[in-house]
Simulated assay, not measured.
Amino acid sequence: MKTIVLDSPTVFKFQEQEAPTSLQANEALVRIRKIGICGTDYHAFRGKQPFFSYPRVLGHELGAEVVRLGGEKNAIHVGDRVTIEPYLNCGTCQSCLNNKSNCCQNLQVLGVHVDGGMTEYLKVPIHKLHQSKILSYEQLALVEPLSIGAHAVQRAEVTAKDMVLVIGAGPIGLSVMQFAKLRGAKVVVLDINKERLNFAQEQMQVDFILEATEDFAPDALRSCLDGFLPTVVFDATGNPNSMKNAFSYVSFGGKLVFVGLFIGEVTFDDPLFHRREITLLASRNSLPQDFSDIIHLMENGKIDIKPWVTHRADFDDLPHVFNDWLDPKSKVIKTVVAL
């Protein structure tokens, strides 16, 4: 089977590998049909992805077809269209036993810690498959990135009373906007990229957009929110300066959620943190229920991912065009690769 391996930073190689043959009773063999490209893949390509080693087969945003089952009887059948929950948790650690499988102490993520879906066939646990009779493979490939935003919004317990600031209008920031809007919150978006801001306003119908200039101050937020500051701030940049500055944007008694991450330390002014009694949250991956909920919303027309997919490529072309997507001039929001 054809496989693309990230051999080292910036170096993709094609390999012919043997397709999996033996399956355990709890395993399925799937044929990968569509692959979403995300920030993790770009960071790995650049050599800047935490918890990563080379060589590695990337790909964890996946739309696939079930081609064989190991024997376990369940709701999944051969021929089903599925998305894959790429978080392989142990099931026995304290986090797993407390229904927090997304932060399993022994977690292995497809395409990050173990080889992922940039290949024709993949063997996965059956319980990690989420099926839809309605959604296309492309739609199913985008369930996982949507789930990151869904989980973050759930963590923050956003309601219609909240004033939400999303910092970073990339795909993860867009997913946060999507679910904050679904909960009825007022949403402001802050980014340095004018085109992404315009996309957020036109396609996500956020309430306000603000350009992040060097002299940006919280007063700009007050002007959008009737003199108030956001009750919930999501930072989806993974930029240390942005994450540090985010503390000053949170209202008294508000919440700050770090969705993005970087290799390093975040510092903040402790008196400001205490005086405002800010709740600081990290949001990592997502939970099985997030996948089920998103599929239901997509099937019922509550989420439309068509505007998100700005670029598409064939599997054989990926090594030749991947670097181009890193150029801001390419105006990439989300790329999907077809096998």
Rank of each mutant, 00 (worst) to 15 (best):
M1N: 09
K2F: 08
I4F: 02
L6S: 06
S8K: 15
T10E: 14
V11H: 10
F12T: 06
F12M: 08
P20C: 03
S22L: 09
A25K: 15
T40R: 09
H43Y: 05
F45S: 01
G47R: 01
G47V: 00
K48Y: 12
F51A: 11
S53V: 00
S53G: 00
S53P: 00
R56A: 05
R56F: 02
V57E: 03
L58H: 13
L58V: 12
L62M: 13
E65C: 01
V66R: 04
V67T: 07
R68T: 10
G70I: 04
E72R: 14
I76C: 04
T83N: 07
E85A: 11
E85D: 15
P86E: 01
C90F: 01
C90M: 01
T92I: 12
C93H: 07
Q94R: 15
C96I: 09
C96H: 13
C104P: 03
V109H: 09
V109F: 11
G111P: 15
H113R: 13
H127P: 09
K133M: 10
S136A: 09
Y137G: 06
Y137Q: 03
Q139C: 03
L140N: 06
A141R: 02
V143H: 02
E144L: 03
A150D: 00
R155H: 11
E157C: 12
V158R: 04
V164L: 05
L165V: 10
V166N: 02
I167N: 07
I167G: 04
A169S: 02
I172E: 01
S175A: 00
Q178M: 06
A180D: 01
R183A: 05
G184Y: 13
G184S: 11
G184P: 14
K194I: 09
E195P: 08
R196C: 01
L197N: 05
L197D: 06
Q203L: 05
V206F: 11
L210C: 12
E211L: 13
T213P: 08
T213N: 11
E214R: 15
D215N: 14
A217Q: 15
A220H: 15
R222S: 14
C224H: 04
F228W: 15
L229Y: 08
P230L: 07
A236M: 05
A236K: 10
G238N: 04
N239Y: 12
N239L: 09
S242F: 13
Y249T: 08
S251P: 10
G253D: 08
G253M: 08
G254K: 04
K255G: 05
L256I: 07
F258W: 11
I263W: 12
V266G: 03
T267N: 03
F268P: 00
D269L: 10
L272M: 09
F273W: 10
H274L: 12
R275K: 14
R276S: 08
L281K: 11
A282V: 07
R284D: 04
R284A: 07
D290W: 02
D290E: 02
I295G: 01
I303E: 00
V309S: 00
D317E: 06
D317A: 10
P319N: 06
N323V: 08
N323D: 09
D324T: 15
P328Q: 13
K329Y: 04
T335G: 15
A338Q: 13
A338W: 10
L339P: 12
